[in-house]
Design a protein around this nucleic acid. Structure first.
Lengths: 352, 352
DNA sequence: ATGAAAGCGCTAACAG
DNA sequence: CTGTTAGCGCTTTCAT
């Protein structure tokens, strides 16, 4: 006999057949109702829903995925840091994914992880996602996997390559350009740059924007100082920059570094903004409340996430169509008290 | 004829039968190899792996989940904020989940979301997770769903109820107690508290710890000022507290609020730490670099996540066994420059 | 507008 | 140590 109680208890959770039986319809009809398919009379739909409710029925996503070949989920590869930028983007992605009707699976790549992005993507593929978001990646060369689902890279330069991959930009270069121009507009001869780690695309973009702004006005390009995003590295850079009297304006690639920088400057007796102006990047929550309140650039994380997801979902659901045009997210410079005109400008008769 | 080409192209991805055929074994053996089951000869294992490699075979997780009844994934419900604390915890959870061999699915509950935690849990259940982590929840009353998988609540007081739910504590009350005692030890008569929003368990725990510390020494308990975690709310609270000359020490429930508070105090001419000592909570990355460097309490996010996951995995994999004892994560007070002895103590010919 | 039948690719249970 | 058989609960395809 094979009629015996199969697997475990069997008294378990209800399946669609149970609902069908109770509603007096076929199992397929239950499926139709739960998938919002057409050709189900309002009455039947109601009866099915009632039966499902009574039983506490829940669609089995594994069975659904197996039968349909789609998991209705997207995976995101993140850097695994609580840094304000990446964390904000992740939250934006979660929201956008959910709004699009997908579930979200997350895999981090720890810095220094040998498997890196490739390993993370692989793990997502094992899980069977319908699409992949790579958030703020660092440069590790191309991803060495055969990826057969659409991939979108958020916040990387378009040079990031992968099959079926598109890029949706934070446009950090533009933002960096705006920050640099603000300093130039105030009258500074040139602007120094406290860059992020150059393995990060996000850091490189900011460097590019800074460079472009200087070049556009024919200004001298000072040597770049590189930090690691941390306030501590900003502090170290600040000690170095404080020693150079030619430094009157610094654009830091993120707010944490800017804060460390300002502290080092202050300790060295070079007040901000009296002697040196500083612009940060991100507009972290405390930026308006540190001393001095930080002029910074705000990134539109939610907009970037939404935009990226729009493209990804399009690629998933309409594979044969071309991608819709990308919309550029808004740019915002928040001017506070850490930037001012250079001294030589405010007190004309030479420097003070 | 049913022999015609079924579903789509069929030239698609390889399945375990394909691997089996190529390796000259049965399909079940392939399954054995991929599940690291015993009783497979080294030779067969090698052949199977080689065949899988050649074909680019990947286990189909949906089929596996359907057949086994387990998804090998855990879901996490988070608050959807980039605040340092919650974001750090999330990263810790991701790591712990992956280390435990599970995949991670994430659902946020936006503050003010009508569906709330219940909706988030529901969505995780729809996705078919094996276990659920609820991270740093806010109080919405009990979760109104029939949950048939283990649930662990991170950073909530044990009063949070749900079927099969256990709590792994951040032990924020203990940490808050340490912070308060530090201030008392410095000689302050009492300590004011700038609390977080009381709907958050995390905020309540800190309040409790503060209260306990005062009570233990028989100190007067000043009125609590409540903020919303933001530096802006800390600033507002600071303006209020600055007006009260009796305030010589404040314990803020997080660093952001502490920073806003310090700014307001400074603007009101009440220097930190000369006139007022301030302790924060979290040790955010910039805490050491703001002015003055912030004395704060560091939460062991990774340890909490690991500990929580250990319990959850135990509950998933050995449902009939009792939970192992919980290990209390380490406590750390980071003393920097925002705290000092009160003036009245340092000036008179008394102490020192 | 509804139903019947046939898998989706894998693991479980039991033989050998 | 290895293979056989029977589903897991749903969607697909094709009838009706």
């Amino acid at each position: 006999m094979t009629q015996s109680v199969p697997r475990s208890e069997r008294a378990s959770t209800p399946r669609s057949v149970d609902v069908a039986r109770l509603a007096g319809v076929s199992q397929k009809t239950v499926s139709r109702v739960f998938n919002d398919e057409p050709y189900v009379s309002a009455d039947v739909r109601r009866r099915v829903m009632a039966a499902a409710d009574e039983l506490g029925y829940r669609l089995n996503s594994a069975a659904r995925a197996l039968a349909s070949g789609r998991t209705r989920s997207v995976g995101v590869v993140t850097l695994g840091t609580a840094l304000y930028g990446p964390a904000s983007l992740l939250m934006g992605i979660e929201r956008a994914v959910r709004d699009a009707g997908y579930a979200l699976r997350v895999v981090n790549t720890l810095e220094g992880d040998p498997a890196g992005v490739t390993g993370a993507v692989e793990s997502l593929l094992d899980q069977g996602v319908d699409g992949i978001v790579i958030s703020e990646p660092i440069d590790e060369g191309a991803v060495a996997v055969q990826v057969d689902v659409p991939v979108i890279v958020l916040g990387a330069s378009p040079s990031f390559v992968a099959p079926r991959a598109v890029t949706a930009g934070v446009g950090a270069d533009l933002l960096a350009r705006v920050a640099t121009e603000h300093l130039l507009d105030l009258g500074h001869e040139t602007v120094h740059h406290l860059a992020g780690p150059q393995r990060w695309f996000a850091a490189r973009d900011r460097l590019d924007g800074w460079r472009a702004a200087l070049a556009a006005r024919g200004r001298r390009e000072p040597a770049v100082v590189e930090g690691d995003w941390s306030a501590a590295s900003g502090y170290a850079a600040g000690r170095q920059l404080a020693a150079d009297p030619g430094v009157t304006a610094v654009f830091a690639a993120n707010d944490d570094m800017a804060i460390g920088l300002i502290r080092a400057l202050a300790e060295a007796g070079r007040g901000v903004p009296e002697e040196v102006s500083v612009v940060g990047f991100d507009d972290i929550p405390v930026a308006a409340f540190v001393t001095p309140p930080l002029t910074t650039v705000r990134q539109p994380f939610d907009a970037v996430a939404q935009e990226g997801l729009r493209l990804l979902v399009h690629a998933i659901e309409k594979p044969e169509q071309d991608l819709p045009p990308a919309n550029d997210p808004p740019v915002e410079l928040v001017v506070r008290a850490s930037t001012a005109q250079p001294r030589s400008r405010t007190i004309p008769g030479r420097d003070r």
